[in-house]
Nucleic acid binder design. Sequence first.
DNA 1: TACTATATAATAATGATTATCAATTATAAA
DNA 2: TTTATAATTGATAATCATTATTATATAGTA
Lengths: 142, 142
Amino acid sequence: MSNNSAIVILTKHGLKITPQRIAILDVILNLKEHPTAETICNYLRPGYPNLSIATIYKTLDTFAQKGIIRKVLSETDTMRYDGVAEKHHHLYNTGSGRIEDYYDEGLNKIVENYLKNKKIPNFTIEDFKLQIFGKFRDNGNK
Amino acid sequence: MSNNSAIVILTKHGLKITPQRIAILDVILNLKEHPTAETICNYLRPGYPNLSIATIYKTLDTFAQKGIIRKVLSETDTMRYDGVAEKHHHLYNTGSGRIEDYYDEGLNKIVENYLKNKKIPNFTIEDFKLQIFGKFRDNGNK
DNA sequence: TACTATATAATAATGATTATCAATTATAAA
DNA sequence: TTTATAATTGATAATCATTATTATATAGTA
Ligand SMILES: [Mn+2]
Ligand SMILES: [Mn+2]
Ligand SMILES: [Zn+2]
Ligand SMILES: [Zn+2]
């Protein structure tokens, strides 16, 4: 039960267990679409009519600070959130807001290795991420 | 004279030559720091006291649409603009807003080649960009 | 020089996010 | 189990980057 894993995660990070945090964490971990705060709100409103959008923002920020989730930059003025905390890259559908995860350990190794030899002057690399732009061949969404 | 090259570029893209466009293009092409609209405004206000921030936004957007400049996503809620239109990557200084260009044709080739063989299912790649996060070893700016 | 479409400046509006703060609640101590 | 207390939440106001509006000014052209 995903509900349970949310509690485990909250506990592990020393966060108080609240119904709002459980619900929000549950959604962000199971949704694959890099939702906005607003999207998450829409998912949860039926079950939590009083859930405040401010609480969602604050909670997502708390999770991101703990490293439970990540923030994803988008083309528009809207922050997207990512339930996947492990290293991965993103496929951006040009023109629409669709963003999908892209895992590629082989690519990681190749780039990592290249950059290790390259030694960028005056800069110490901590991490890198690929933004891959293009078009999904299935349409069916904006 | 950079002033002149601005006029050439505007002409090439069929844009009317105005003092504002010349000034804005001149700044964005010569500034290496991926400025915000506000930063550009501050640079130009001494010479153009009536220059409107709305004009700057609209002008930058026009330039971006023509492919003369690019928009750069940043960690904060503020759009950054990039006078370099050619393919390149970015070094993000974690914690501060500093963003610097990173050109690496070798890296481009390697990744390009890797992805060409890889064939991501259901996705046609148009372009890719690396976000490299880390720390600049010279401090001296935020 | 005069005409017309376009650009600009001033300012209002928008929309995402953050701040504020009183009321509620999760946790731990008694 | 009750109580105490610090943290969280919800309601709402404020902020701030960006966009829309519109009257005026101007670049390009005849
Ligand atoms: Mn905004
Ligand atoms: Mn914003
Ligand atoms: Zn992701
Ligand atoms: Zn750049």
